[in-house]
């Protein structure tokens, strides 16, 4: 594999969105959110939008290609190779870096996922591009330069990141930070299949096994629009049924505070906060959670926060849009029952 050759800044043009497919081959919503963000950058910068897809040689990606064009991609570069059948960081990084060297994109956007955050730093290193992950806002300034807003310092300080010289400018966007646009079904499909030159020496990693998540409601925390989280106020793992029942009645996902994960009541995959997940649902219910700063880091950007806690001084009430000072064992079941009996539906 040859060295990457860096070109002059002004030679890099166009905006890419690297789309991600689920295990079942569907486009992730976050990829369409990134595409919508790219569309508005494209209008400001008068640059073309291309979507990039990676898949196995025989995988049928025509549906995804059509959708990407309907959501604003002017063309799709569909990279196909049997070595892309299963995600491996080195292979993805090499395939994309190679295409960067050929097409010289100015900006690369992708949804912020554990996959993009795994291989895109390698693309940045290889291509000498800049990388700004987990963006919550993108702007083009008066000079026509990209400005990326991203949270830092435990979500306490926002930073505006710029790319003085190096290209491409690689950015991942946080889930739900950008609205997904509307599909325009009249747009034609324009897709080109490319075969990346991959060396069989890659990769040095091998996937042995995937153990599915333990989420009982089957909802992924990062994607959920409604989250019901429980904390130490529930007094024991058996009482998490209160949380699960409310989550089920609302059609939401279950989350947990660090304290109950550390106590072994709930798996780490449900933890919201500094050493867990960062979520921004439309509705976040905190049941028996005091709301230490480390928890707030992971959920303070939720649209509406509802807290139930018996301690009226709990810090969670400082950020809750609606707080109930009361016994979670009394209030939560009444709430669940009322929602079920009155057939109340949440529209988010």
């Amino acid at each position: 594999m040859g060295e990457f050759i860096v070109q002059p800044t002004e030679d890099y043009k166009g905006i890419w969105v690297i789309a991600e497919l689920s295990e079942s081959g569907c486009l992730l919503d976050i990829s369409l959110e990134a595409l919508t963000a790219a569309k508005s950058l494209g209008e400001s910068l008068h640059q073309e939008i291309s979507a990039i897809l990676l898949s196995a040689t025989n995988q049928d990606t025509s549906q995804a290609e059509e959708t990407l064009c309907q959501y604003g991609a002017q063309q799709v570069f569909s990279l196909k190779h049997d070595m892309l059948a299963q995600y491996q960081a080195e292979v993805y990084a090499y395939a994309i870096s190679d295409l960067v060297g050929v097409k010289l994109p100015n900006i690369i956007l992708a949804g912020s996922t554990s996959t993009s955050r795994d291989y895109l730093p390698r693309v940045a290193a290889r291509t000498h591009g800049g990388f700004a992950p987990d963006s919550i806002a993108l702007e083009v300034n008066a000079q026509g330069e990209l400005e990326v807003t991203r949270p830092t310092y435990g979500e306490n300080l926002w930073a505006k990141v710029v790319f003085p010289k190096n290209r491409p400018q690689i950015v991942t966007v946080r889930a739900k930070a950008f609205a997904k646009g509307e599909a325009d079904k009249s747009r034609p499909v324009n897709s080109e299949t490319l075969i990346p030159p991959l060396s069989p020496e890659l990769p040095h990693t091998k996937l042995i096994q995937v153990v599915q998540g333990e989420s009982k409601t089957g909802k992924k925390l990062e994607e959920a629009e409604i989250i019901v989280s429980g904390g130490r106020g529930l007094k024991g793992p058996e009482n998490f049924k209160l949380v699960e029942d409310l989550a089920e009645a609302l059609g939401g996902a279950v989350g947990a505070s660090r304290a109950v994960v550390d106590a072994g009541w709930r798996p780490h995959s449900e933890q919201v906060g500094q050493t867990g997940k960062t979520v921004s649902p439309q509705l976040y219910f905190a049941l028996g959670i005091s709301g230490a700063i480390q928890h707030q880091v992971g959920m303070s950007s939720s649209k509406i926060i509802i807290a139930i806690n018996k301690d009226s001084d709990a810090p969670i009430f400082d950020i809750a849009n609606f707080g109930i000072v009361g016994d979670v064992f009394e209030v939560a079941p009444v709430l669940t029952k009322t929602i079920k009996e009155q057939n109340l539906a949440v529209s988010v």
Binding site: N156, K160, I305, F317, N321, F322, G323, V325, G326
Partner: peptide, 15 residues
Amino acid sequence: TWRKPKKEGGIKVDG
């Protein structure tokens, strides 16, 4: 850099 706009607490009711 700038400080993240602080979220204000809202309604608080007796449970």
